[in-house]
């Protein structure tokens, strides 16, 4: 079966060990975590994780069940099953000479990115968007030297007024 990209949202008890239980489940079963993001929610006793993995339909069903079985996990949802919004943030530190400055400014405008730090020899740029946009922006840098790159990993939320917390 074909491997597809899945965005898994997980609500977990905000306790020590929760993250390692989830990471352990992936490594023990040979699943790959492509990217991962964790932070507390408006209910501070709960953290929300967004995790991207590539696997086939049968595996993803099993994976969701295994995650749900973990005692710390409050709820699990594969966001890619329904309409959803995803965003990622990129921080890019670029080395640039005088000639490249205008080019970078132009590209940041096109992508609606922002320059958030300026020095004599470089810019740091911030960009938010879906993964394709982030990748396109990085691609557009061309010969401009990337000194450092940080990506948040994907964040996702379903469309409409349903909440992962209400489903419980």
């Amino acid at each position: 079966m074909d491997e597809k990209r899945h965005i898994i949202s997980i609500l977990v008890e905000n306790e020590f060990g929760s993250l390692s239980r989830i990471a352990g489940l992936f490594s023990a079963r040979g699943y790959n975590i492509h990217c991962l993001n964790v932070a507390p929610t408006n209910d501070e006793s709960i953290s929300r994780m967004t995790l991207v993995t590539f696997c086939n339909d049968q595996k993803i069903k099993q994976l969701a069940k295994q995650l749900d079985k973990l005692i710390d996990v409050v709820n699990v949802k594969d966001l890619t099953e329904e309409t959803h919004i995803e965003r990622e943030m990129l921080l890019l530190k670029l080395k640039c000479n005088k000639n490249q400055r205008d080019e970078i400014k132009r590209l940041t405008d096109i992508f609606r990115a922002r320059i958030i730090d300026v020095t004599d020899t470089g810019y740091t740029v911030e960009l938010t968007g879906a993964t394709e946009k982030i990748l396109a922006f990085i691609e557009s840098m061309g010969k401009i030297k990337i000194i450092e790159m940080v990506r948040s990993g994907t964040l996702g939320i379903s469309r409409g007024i349903d909440s992962l917390e209400n489903i419980k």
């Binding site: 049968q58 099993q62 069940k65």
Partner: peptide, 11 residues
């Protein structure tokens, strides 16, 4: 009793 046992090996 365990939902994760369902269709784990055999559909």
């Amino acid at each position: 009793v365990d939902p994760s046992s369902i269709s784990k090996i055999i559909e």
